[in-house]
C-alpha cells in the first residue's frame, strides 16, 4: 500500500510537469496559431504557402515520429537539447499546426459583410481584427479551443518515450515496481480526468460568459 502511495506522490509530481508543459505550449501555440492563421488568410502568397505546408507537415506526420526527429534527429547535427525542452518545443510546434486550423476556421466563419463594414468605415486591418473580427470568432472557436487544450495535455503522454518525467513516466515505473498495473494506471487515469475535467469546465464557463456578453 505504501508503495502505491509513494508512486501516487511521484505521479502528482509528474502532473506538475504535465501541466507546465501543457500550459506553456498552449499559450505559445495559440499566439503562433492566431498569427499563422492571419498569415494564411491575409498574408502574401509566399507566407500562405509556407503556413499551408507547415500545417500539412504537422498534420501528416505521426506525432511520435515528429518527437523522435526533433529529439534524436537533431543530435546528429550536434544540437543536444534536454528532453524537457525538446518536449516543450515539440508541443509548441505540434499545437501551432492545429491551432492555425482552428483560428482559420473561426476567422473564415465571420461573414464577409463584417469585413466590408469595417473597411467601409475606414478601420485599419488591425483594428478591424481586434475590435470586430476576433471578438466574434473567439466565441465561435471556444469549443474547439477547449478541445485543443485537452488534446495538448493528452499529447504530453507521448513525452515519456524520450524520458520526460511526466505522469506516464512515473506510472510506468510504479507498475513495474509494484506489479499492480490496474491500480497504478487507474490512479494516473484519475489524475488526467481531474485535469481535463477542469479544462472542460473552464471552457464551458468561458462559453457561457461569451454567450451572455453577446
Amino acid at each position: 500500500m505504501s508503495a502505491i502511495a509513494l508512486y501516487t506522490g511521484e505521479m502528482l509530481d509528474g502532473a506538475v510537469i504535465t501541466l507546465e508543459l501543457t500550459a506553456g505550449a498552449t499559450v505559445v501555440s495559440l499566439v503562433a496559431g492566431a498569427a499563422g492563421a492571419v498569415g494564411r488568410l491575409y498574408g502574401p502568397k509566399a507566407l500562405k504557402t509556407f503556413v499551408m505546408a507547415y500545417v500539412e507537415t504537422i498534420r501528416g506526420l505521426p506525432a511520435i515520429l515528429q518527437l523522435f526527429i526533433l529529439y534524436f534527429g537533431l543530435t546528429q547535427f550536434g544540437i543536444d537539447i534536454s528532453a524537457y525542452w525538446a518536449a516543450f518545443v515539440w508541443l509548441c510546434l505540434y499545437g501551432t499546426g492545429y491551432a492555425i486550423e482552428i483560428f482559420r476556421a473561426g476567422l473564415q466563419g465571420i461573414p464577409e459583410g463584417q469585413h466590408e463594414a469595417t473597411a467601409a468605415l475606414g478601420l485599419t486591418r488591425f483594428e478591424a481584427m481586434r475590435r470586430v473580427i476576433i471578438p466574434q470568432a473567439w466565441v465561435a472557436m471556444l469549443p474547439a479551443l477547449t478541445n485543443f487544450v485537452v488534446l495538448e495535455l493528452k499529447n504530453t503522454t507521448l513525452l515519456y518515450f524520450i524520458g520526460v518525467q511526466d505522469i506516464m513516466f512515473h506510472a510506468r515505473l510504479g507498475v513495474s515496481n509494484s506489479g499492480q498495473p490496474l491500480v497504478v494506471y487507474g490512479i494516473a487515469a484519475g489524475i488526467y480526468v481531474v485535469m481535463n475535467g477542469t479544462i472542460s469546465r473552464v471552457g464551458g464557463l468561458l462559453e457561457k460568459r461569451a454567450a451572455i456578453a453577446r
Binding site: Q114, E116, A117, V132, A213, R214
Partner: peptide, 10 residues
C-alpha cells in the same frame, strides 16, 4: 449602408 445591415453583433 448595406442591404444586410452588417452591424457588429457583439
Amino acid at each position: 449602408v448595406f442591404q444586410t445591415f452588417n452591424l457588429f453583433p457583439h
